[in-house]
Design a protein around this nucleic acid. Structure first.
Lengths: 223, 223
DNA sequence: TTCTATACAGTGATTTAATCACCTGTTTAC
DNA sequence: GTAAACAGGTGATTAAATCACTGTATAGAA
């Protein structure tokens, strides 16, 4: 990616870009690189070194927490045009928990290293505010997830998941039961059993690594 | 509370106060009032009108979410010297969920009305950043709570709750089982049964609206 | 004082979901 | 071609939430 292209891309994040001086823009350019991730690749974790702020160009990232026993719960996803802020958590003093970030699909991002981001936060109040604003947006995302987990029964949550996938990518869903379990903060067996139950009800058709929604109406009745 | 006292009190919140102009400080003074709340009083909810930012002077506030069926889960508490930001959620565009705030003890707060806060956010980037920074801090608090609920078994969470109360207010805990259940996002019966189990183990002594921790060591073994 | 409504707490039964143990079939890497 | 890793299935057990009902202490009204 050449510099001109990078500038053009970053200007699509006005909250971040608009209040930078020309000098700061050049500084950002010097401290970013384009990185490609493959599906399932870990981008950020508690022990791995901190990678910085990701401006996602394509693909999809999954941000999650993990228990000591390895149980995962997905907090939210980061889509193209959005920013992954928690991958810079090493320079974010307000963030006191450990989050993990994986690529869910082949993904490309413009990555600003944490040192440069930290420098900008120190010097430019608008960058600090950008950082905190991104956190606030994700706070709301996490609250949505939390309410789902705490207040909705498992069958309803699975139905919501299937429905969202249907809207986003059509009636064929290519996730393993394990991946769905991680997304919903549940266990693989529980997902398998509920999918089989949905299949008996005629809502979906289940086969290896593929779930087909065959009755949208019946699915919507479960929301 | 006279103006001089108000100024002195608000200056203890440097993130908020430091970057205000003299004019803005006067504006804040004109748009704040001291309010007292009694234990159990609701301060903020989805339907009640938005009260604004609370700079807590004394007491303790409880911030929580509620399901449609009325089940409550406490997100965090706001102590003296801290700020309750979600009570101004009507003017916070990034906050898309409904939170509730109650006074847990007799509490006193300096309250800045939402209109004035919104005006300041528009005009002063430091105030906007203060607002977003407060949200980011509470984001971390909520993540702590979420990890407790999702990853720790109920007996451990109850032990942690009792231990925290022991450290804060001594060995006698004056909450009803219902209040503890709300705090832990559980049900009253579950709390009652686990307390009885703890009592059989010799950790606590349970009586009406009162739990006495009689063996700190045994309690700490359960953490 | 006594009555009564209400808040608080105890308990068995049931249901939901998570966990455990173990199994089969399929795909992938060497 | 074979082993290892991955995907999925199933029964048994356990944890916790929920439901339905009971008794009891306490504050306020009669």
């Amino acid at each position: 990616m050449e510099v001109r292209e990078k500038l053009e891309f970053l200007s699509r994040y006005p909250d971040f870009w608009r209040h930078l001086s020309e000098e700061e823009k050049a500084f950002v350019c010097h401290n970013t690189e384009v990185i490609n991730y493959h599906p399932g690749q870990n981008i950020h974790s508690a022990d791995s070194e901190c990678i910085g702020v990701l401006f996602v160009k394509s693909g999809c990232l999954r941000v999650y927490i993990m228990s000591e026993e390895g149980k995962e719960v997905t907090l939210y996803r980061v889509s193209p045009g959005e920013v992954c802020i928690l991958s810079a958590s090493c320079v974010l003093s307000e963030i006191t928990f450990d989050a993990y970030v994986d690529a869910e699909e082949p993904s490309e991002a413009v990555v600003l290293n944490p040192f440069a981001f930290s420098k900008l936060i120190e010097k430019n109040i608008y960058v600090e505010n950008f950082s905190n604003k991104m956190k606030a947006i994700r706070f709301s995302d996490v609250m949505w997830t939390m309410q789902q987990i705490l207040f909705f029964s498992f069958d309803k949550r699975l139905a919501i998941f299937l429905y969202e996938e249907l809207i986003k990518n059509g009636p064929i869903i290519r996730y393993s039961h394990m991946e769905i379990a991680k997304y919903l903060g549940s266990a693989r067996e529980v997902v398998s059993r509920m999918l089989k139950y949905f299949e008996n009800e005629g809502v979906v058709k289940v086969s290896r690594k593929e779930i087909e929604i065959i009755d949208k109406k019946k699915l919507m009745e479960r929301l």
